[in-house]
């Protein structure tokens, strides 16, 4: 704990030098706009706030807003969620903005539209790197090679990247297409017959509230483990998922903001994926499927090791 604080202090010191005397004299005014009040947004905000204060101390002035935004004057805006991010990007084109807690597609769209803005903008999105899901499958089911995946209107764009990642990991994809209005039961049946594990990507159509139940049930009945993308999936009956908690995302956003504050407008990086993550495994489902699964910590370690490898 102490070590973490020392690091944070050291980091704060460095940032202080980088940010220069101006920042110290005039606290940066950061406004965080939440799309809605909810556990996830609240946890995100609290982690962001605590980390920012730890890193930058009283050299920042933080305020928190909901939607609609209203009048604001800030050095930097943080949008939490897609709706909040869209609104501030539109309304405050002259204020540097970091969009967070939004899907990767939305982040990419915003970043594109942001190119014409006067002030820089970037995003921290929710989707885990596709390779992380693949790493989880590898770590959980070392003998499985055939990975079923259903592409919906949103996740279809991930196809090439996922296929490349799967190939690198020695996995074969078994793919199915899903359009709005399709019958998930009928799409799943042939797919499950040729898959050893099913990867569910964050697609609002495929993973709609109406589809989750038949999806998890049908897969379990066939003895096919499901890899989800949220803690809720694991609780509902997926075998496992890799995801970032709102707090992890809040901390990452804070660290990033601390770096961005001193940057030239031209030097802002493109949208980023989550840095920290957790692995959740439903041990009861694993047992019922007859799978011996390493501990969460061990899985996390293997995924980390996989990512730092050159």
């Amino acid at each position: 704990m102490w070590r973490r604080w020392l690091w944070a202090l050291g980091f704060a010191g460095l940032c202080g030098i980088a940010a220069g005397a101006a920042a110290a004299a005039d606290p940066a005014r950061i406004a965080v706009i939440l799309t809605q009040e909810g556990d996830a947004y609240q946890a995100f905000y609290e982690a962001l706030r605590d980390r920012l204060h730890a890193v930058l101390g009283d050299r920042i002035h933080l305020q928190r807003r909901g939607l609609p935004v209203g009048e604001l004057s800030a050095t930097l805006l943080v949008g939490a969620g897609r709706l909040a991010s869209e609104e501030i990007l539109q309304r405050y084109p002259a204020t540097p903005t970091v969009a967070t807690l939004l899907p990767r597609r939305a982040a990419a769209d915003l970043a594109r539209s942001g190119e014409r803005r006067a002030a820089p903008a970037t995003a921290l999105y929710l989707d885990q790197p596709l390779d992380r899901h693949i790493g989880l499958i590898r770590a959980l089911l070392p003998h499985a090679t055939r990975v079923g995946v259903i592409y919906g209107p949103t996740s279809r764009a991930d196809r090439t990247e996922l296929a490349a990642g799967a190939r690198r990991a020695g996995l074969e994809l078994r793919e199915a297409e899903f359009a709005a209005g399709d019958n998930i039961v009928r799409v799943l049946e042939p797919l499950l017959a040729k898959s050893e594990v099913l990867l569910v990507l964050p697609d609002p159509e495929v993973s709609s509230p109406r589809n989750v139940y038949p999806l998890l049930m049908a897969s379990y009945r066939k003895g096919i483990p499901v890899i989800g993308f949220s803690a809720a999936y694991v609780d509902a009956g997926a075998l496992a998922a890799v995801y970032s908690s709102p707090a992890q995302l809040g901390e990452q956003a804070a660290d990033w903001i601390a770096q961005l504050l001193g940057r030239e407008p031209g030097g802002w990086p493109p949208p980023q994926p989550p840095r920290d993550f957790q692995v959740g495994v439903n041990r009861h489902v694993a047992r019922s499927l007859g799978l011996a699964v390493p501990t969460d910590a061990e899985l996390h370690r293997r995924l980390r090791a996989r990512e730092v490898r050159p």
């Binding site: 899907p103 989750v212 019922s288």
Partner: peptide, 18 residues
């Protein structure tokens, strides 16, 4: 039910299926 916010799949509350 409306689709809601696009990030919904990530925070979506799910029933205990199994």
């Amino acid at each position: 039910a409306p689709g809601g916010a696009a990030e919904d799949p990530f925070w979506q509350e799910l029933p205990v299926v199994l």
